[in-house]
Write a protein that binds this DNA or RNA. Sequence first.
DNA 1: AAACTCCATTTGTCATACAATATGATAATT
DNA 2: AATTATCATATTGTATGACAAATGGAGTTT
Lengths: 248, 248
Amino acid sequence: MALRFNLREQIVQEIGREIVQGRLRPGENLPQEYLLCQQYQVSRTVIREALKGLSTRGLVKARPRVGTQVCARKDWQMLDPDVLIWYFEGKPQGEFLRHLTEIRAMIEPAAAELAAQRATPEEIARIEKCFRQLEKSIASPKQWIEADIEFHVSILNACHNILLQSLVNTLRKTLLKSRALSVPLPESGPGQNLTSGIELGIDRSVYHHQQIFSAIRDRDGAAACRHMQALLRDVAAAVETLISLSER
Amino acid sequence: MALRFNLREQIVQEIGREIVQGRLRPGENLPQEYLLCQQYQVSRTVIREALKGLSTRGLVKARPRVGTQVCARKDWQMLDPDVLIWYFEGKPQGEFLRHLTEIRAMIEPAAAELAAQRATPEEIARIEKCFRQLEKSIASPKQWIEADIEFHVSILNACHNILLQSLVNTLRKTLLKSRALSVPLPESGPGQNLTSGIELGIDRSVYHHQQIFSAIRDRDGAAACRHMQALLRDVAAAVETLISLSER
DNA sequence: AAACTCCATTTGTCATACAATATGATAATT
DNA sequence: AATTATCATATTGTATGACAAATGGAGTTT
């Protein structure tokens, strides 16, 4: 067992995975606290604090005399980064990226349009700064991904909608915590064509980003929306490519 | 203090509000555990389990020797329904509805289009059932709101995107837990014109819903998108009306 | 100035006891 | 017989006291 966490956190992770990945099913009772103490060889304090971590995430509900039951899926706080990670760990590679890209394709064009109307001069300057950083990062995949994320976050923040910002922040945290992005890079040996393929895509990507930034700066919402759509079509295609490559 | 909750939950709520509503600021230290025990007149067990609930939501971080610090806002799990409610409690009336409607206007047209492509026959039947229920509920505001929510949820679920479903579920839970919807109804005395205004809107609303359902059934994504946009324009206008009325 | 050692402070963990609560069985009442 | 009231019991909720582990800083050495 990894020692990155304290006892409580380790047990949260273990039981959390058991539930979210379906080995403990909704309605089932967890063993009683004193049995969990024996099972994990820890004190009841640790078990109870771990169960609190799960009940805060809506995964279990404890009641005296009844015990601790696994909640129905509709009660789960799926938008907790840990819950999301546990969930997608149990799914095929790339599934998270696929869903993420899809919801981005729904949101970001409309968000770009709104940002074009609402962004303050400071926010436009911030978007430009992120774009310049992106231009400078085409050589380094790691830096490029970071700069790319910052660019999109800066646009979404310019919408001045706290719910949107919260969603983006959650997805960003999940993306960075998960290994979703660290998968395709290791196999740079035989897949040299993958690298060139990505670089081919990067030129188009930089162009799209430039067009999006210009449109927002010029307060042209329709154009910002259009170019964001085009960019996300490319992203979706790239994700599918990565998935098919990682399946070999 | 309401006794709806156990001690731990009460303290989670109290300190959670202190943080999210800004009376305890990021970087600040909470009092040490033994001091909190004195302050709230409870055992350290309760304090620790409460702090655990806050740290799971990303509001605080505890470290030996250093104490328990309020986290930066970017670390907060804003999409936890409790955190959202605490946050909007500190904001003007209707602020949550406004932000909610805005993010719906970004997402739902695209989602309706996707649903038109992807919905299974069962899901289309479900959407129709929700629409029929809506038609039957025009007389009862309470039932109408429920049916309306179910209709939109059924469309969003037909997109088969777990992230989208999770977001919708979170917002739905928050809406139902908060008093956001229970505000305008009490003042039905002098505001009779409000009622008639809403009923005028309901006719249009039923029409829009009908068009949306038909478009999805007929696999006409573009039309579904168009009609959803029209509906949400009306919703946004209604929200603004309610806000201005509640400000009198 | 940098690295190391030690110390004091705070949270982390353990153990035990008792209180509160919800369920099901049992008894009392109609 | 059906319903209600009571009680016993199992499980989590809370309290208390003790010790362990981790961390930051002061002081020491190089």
